[in-house]
């Protein structure tokens, strides 16, 4: 084991660490926001919307994330430049970077997997509670955000926490489209120093550390959620 390269590359690992965190935080936030309507329309939505949501979940969950990532980055990335409208728009400087494509791909993935979880969660809320909400005169929207959503989230919180860890473990895939997250920096070190195991072990340790942080934080949040008396 030779670790003399570490001081030289430490700042890059810190940068990579933040990129991983940003990638994870953005895709989890956007993905979970999308997951709520995706789950909801499958339970109460109009038929075509429900089918659309189910088709989205099936196709995202049925294909490897790596293929989705490459499809979005190389596929869309090779089509965009042929549209002058896109090249001249304010979005173009961002669309030339790999990072937004990675965020988009991971967001879709989180939305599909968590959307499936939310579907079950919405279904799992006892009907009586929703009827009670109606009986005290709540409108559909008020019922959703005061009763249905909180009760659904309460039931699946641990599952959603697991989804966050799974997303963290998927983020290294972004390195294959030139996003220099922790894993990407590890790859640079491997190429420049010809050391194989040390950078990989460091990268693995960083991911284990992040996993532990997420698990502990989620357990803390979980304990703060009041559980219904059974």
């Amino acid at each position: 084991m030779v670790w003399d390269w570490l001081p030289e590359y430490a700042p890059r690992f810190v940068e990579g660490f933040w990129i991983t965190i940003q990638l994870l935080a953005m895709s989890v936030c956007f993905g979970m926001l999308l997951a709520v309507p995706i789950g909801l329309v499958q339970v109460t939505g109009p038929r075509p919307l429900a089918w659309l949501a189910r088709g989205f979940c099936t196709s995202i969950r049925g294909t490897p994330l790596l293929i989705q990532l490459w499809l979005i980055y190389y596929g869309l990335g090779s089509v965009f430049p042929s549209f002058p409208e896109i090249r001249q728009s304010f979005l173009w400087p961002y669309l030339r970077e790999a990072f937004p494509y990675a965020v988009f791909a991971f967001t879709m993935s989180v939305a599909a997997y968590s959307g499936e979880v939310m579907r079950g969660a919405f279904q799992g809320v006892p009907k009586g509670e929703l009827e009670a909400a109606r009986a005290v005169g709540m409108g559909s929207f008020k019922m959703l955000y005061r009763i249905w959503l909180p009760r659904a989230l309460q039931n699946v919180f641990p599952t959603l926490a697991g989804e966050i860890v799974l997303t963290l473990k998927a983020t290294p895939l972004a390195a294959t489209i030139t996003v220099y997250d922790v894993f990407g920096v590890g790859t640079i070190v491997r190429q420049e120093t010809y050391r194989v195991y040390e950078p990989l072990l460091l990268v693995a340790a960083i991911y284990i550390f992040l996993t532990i942080i997420i698990v502990l934080f989620m357990r803390y949040l979980e304990n703060r959620i009041p559980t219904p008396a059974r």
């Binding site: 963290l168 473990k169 894993f183 693995a204 284990i208 532990i212």
Partner: peptide, 9 residues
């Protein structure tokens, strides 16, 4: 706890 990609390598 370790990403599959890292494990595979």
């Amino acid at each position: 706890a370790v990403p599959e990609l890292v494990l595979i390598l």
